Computed example of a mutant assay.
Amino acid sequence: MSIKNILVAHTGSSGFESSVRYSAKIAAKHGAWLTAVYGGTSSYFDQVLGLTDDLHERLMSVRNEKIVQSVQLFDKLTAEAGIADRAHFISPVQVGNSSLPEIARSFDFVVTGYQPKLPNDEFRSVSPDLVALQSGRPVLVVPDQYVSESLADHALVAWDGKRSSARALNDAMSVLEEKPRKVSVLTAGDVLSELPEGIGIETHLERHGIQAEHLTRSRSGRSIAEVIQATAAEVGAKLIVMGAYEHSKFSQDLFGGVTHEVIRSTRVPVFMSH
């Protein structure tokens, strides 16, 4: 997959600046177009409790001020990256009733910021794993205040041999094939089935010109997400590639999951697919 059309999803969080900076670097490198969309930030009080016309007007005024500030920031960062002529900001009015997954289907992948740390802020955020599921497009999560002078030159691929990790690896292949780039494939625990020689993941990567080291780590009482994060720090990976949740969205919300835990605590960008 060549990278030519990137969507940045912004819902008013402070992670917008980090996600625009990083995606602008990607767009500049690949000669791609960058579009930002602002939406999904209606107030909890507006949704559930209802508001008087006066209070609603005040909230909309604050929201409109944030939108203006976001447009100014987007224009500034894309100009600095040299892609102003290929950058576009879509306002909520232009979005209308279209959902983020519907919009995302017309792009190569979606970039979004961090997940809020407070449970009662979850309603404000873009849910990367859910967007990946509903849009059929990969999602790149950039941590809040993440700063990098260059794009990642070392990727850690979380590999358990399941459908979603295979999809994520395939979607990220154009990124992993870039030279120079180091790739580490991580398997947490004894989860892989025995395959005939010559048809494993290492062979697949080698045939794409990717020389990858395969790391196996014991869980040792840790969650899979903790193993992924610890290994990324250990090997110095600047990008994590992984599949989105394998279970139902209900169980993911109720009990949490690997994807959710990783994107809440990651210190480097995470590229995920479902």
Score class of each variant (00 low, 15 high):
E178K: 07
K179W: 01
K179L: 11
P180Y: 12
R181S: 14
R181P: 02
R181C: 14
R181N: 10
K182Y: 08
V183E: 00
V183I: 10
V183W: 05
V183A: 04
S184A: 11
S184H: 08
S184E: 03
V185M: 10
L186K: 06
L186F: 03
L186R: 02
T187D: 11
T187Y: 10
T187P: 09
A188V: 11
D190W: 03
V191I: 15
L192I: 09
E194Q: 12
L195E: 14
G198E: 06
G198I: 06
G200E: 04
G200P: 05
I201R: 04
I201T: 08
I201S: 07
E202C: 08
T203F: 07
L205V: 08
L205K: 09
L205I: 08
E206V: 05
E206D: 11
E206W: 06
H208G: 08
H208R: 13
G209S: 10
G209E: 09
I210N: 00
I210M: 00
Q211A: 13
Q211R: 13
E213K: 14
E213D: 14
H214P: 01
H214Y: 04
L215I: 14
T216Q: 14
R217C: 04
R217E: 14
S218E: 15
R219C: 13
R219G: 02
G221K: 06
R222V: 01
R222C: 03
S223A: 11
I224Y: 08
I224A: 14
E226S: 13
I228Y: 06
I228T: 05
Q229T: 10
A230G: 06
T231H: 10
T231N: 02
A232H: 00
E234C: 07
E234D: 15
V235L: 12
G236V: 04
A237K: 01
A237E: 03
K238F: 08
K238S: 13
I240Q: 01
I240N: 00
I240M: 06
I240P: 04
I240V: 13
V241F: 07
V241Q: 05
V241Y: 00
V241H: 06
V241C: 09
M242V: 01
G243Q: 11
G243M: 10
G243W: 04
A244H: 06
A244Q: 06
Y245M: 11
E246M: 09
H247W: 04
K249Q: 15
K249N: 13
K249Y: 14
F250R: 15
S251W: 09
S251Y: 06
Q252D: 12
Q252C: 03
D253T: 15
L254Q: 10
F255E: 07
F255T: 08
G256C: 03
G257I: 04
G257D: 07
T259W: 02
H260G: 13
E261R: 11
V262S: 01
V262N: 05
V262A: 00
I263T: 12
R264L: 12
S265H: 15
S265E: 15
R267D: 15
R267E: 15
V270Y: 08
F271M: 09
F271G: 05
F271D: 01
M272R: 07
M272N: 02
